[in-house]
Design a protein around this nucleic acid. Sequence first.
DNA 1: CCGTGCCAAATTGTATACAATATTATAAAC
DNA 2: GTTTATAATATTGTATACAATTTGGCACGG
Lengths: 238, 238
Amino acid sequence: MKAPARPIRRATLHHSAVEELRAMILDGELPPGVRVPEVQLCEQLGISRTPLREALRVLSSEGLVELRPHRGAIVAPVDPGEIGAIFEVMDALERLAGTLACRNGSDAEFAKLDRMHDQLVTQHEAGERAAYFLTNRQIHTQIVAMARNPALEATYAGFAAKILRARSLANYDTGRWQESVDEHEGFMKAFRRRDAEEAGALLADHSRRTAVAVIQALRPAAAQGEKTAAGAEPMDAG
Amino acid sequence: MKAPARPIRRATLHHSAVEELRAMILDGELPPGVRVPEVQLCEQLGISRTPLREALRVLSSEGLVELRPHRGAIVAPVDPGEIGAIFEVMDALERLAGTLACRNGSDAEFAKLDRMHDQLVTQHEAGERAAYFLTNRQIHTQIVAMARNPALEATYAGFAAKILRARSLANYDTGRWQESVDEHEGFMKAFRRRDAEEAGALLADHSRRTAVAVIQALRPAAAQGEKTAAGAEPMDAG
DNA sequence: CCGTGCCAAATTGTATACAATATTATAAAC
DNA sequence: GTTTATAATATTGTATACAATTTGGCACGG
């Protein structure tokens, strides 16, 4: 007897809850800093507290939620300093992904990457901002997938999620748009030559420049207090 | 009223359970592949199923435990391929750590690093293998701490844990010992010069060579079946 | 003799009830 | 009026009870 490589279904409530909550956090439906009352979310998701709490522990482990014992959970605030640190690691991961992708990617995958890049350029020219950002993410995800490294893929995904959250609430400079497309053009040239070192270096550079822009855009929106779902808390009187 | 920066006690049962179980897994007390029956561990830890299950979910998120819905949890097997992938990422992280440590470390920290290195050499000459490995880990942890990057620190710790597990059950080649000390000597020279690039490169190289040795030692011990969780004594911690 | 379908036991998944802690409101003292 | 102590409330942490699913065994049919 052999265990099937892919389980038919792995639907447990806490697992679904993790995905649901993560999506809610990344979509901004649960903004950074808000308290996460258990009972309220329970009836909202139609589940009991037990699976919800298990989901919160997982999300805390991922860094999307902060657990304060006996004081409730909050959606993790977006700290510019932390985002800066994440980007420093991300640079290294992008470089690694670019290098490994050149080494391990198939021709079919490179062709697909080319098509995605064409789509990106088209969307840029058409000014379709939302579509552009989606394609942009897909391209980077594709590069990471071509690296053939599950550990890299998982780590990358975790950081990408946090960065996505930072970008969305910073909605950052449009002036960077053209620059970003040019950089994409640059590392795509390296990819077409299968130049691993160059591709990695350009990807890292692209990440670094993105970091600068995002963090700069993030600075004004620095004050991340603890908010309640209804409204701000009246804290200081005088 | 002021909130203390460090909570006096953050003792919740599930949090303690996470640390306890993680230690048990890393110490080899719970070897890879063994089933983790909830009720048995409950009475062993003196807690109820609820906090234990929350702990299992967290450890699953960290990759130390595999959850199979309705079929119980097992300690994550050590897959040589996965370890290889982890090491690929680890190389990049070591390089980054070395570079950042040169940039951000204080003189006091570099002095401490020097002392730790002296201790390492002494322990090598004395043939104190266990003490050597401990100091070795402390050195690398210190370098990462000097990088001043919490995201790097957390990611590094997660991978280091998995690698530690692989090393312990591979108990790998003694012939590599001398080589490893020489490599330490090498990147320490770069550190003394605060040569960020060189230090990073040598650390990455050190990591890569370690990977080769560990994976090679791991190959014989490949077959990782599902064992039952009896209180099996660790074979020999040489 | 081997394969298939069904039934029983065990273990996990979920819900609910109870206990402990933090927060807020209240009131008394200075 | 401000501050501090105390009690009430609400929310989280834990334990237990119930439901669902998998696993192993057994009978039946081929």
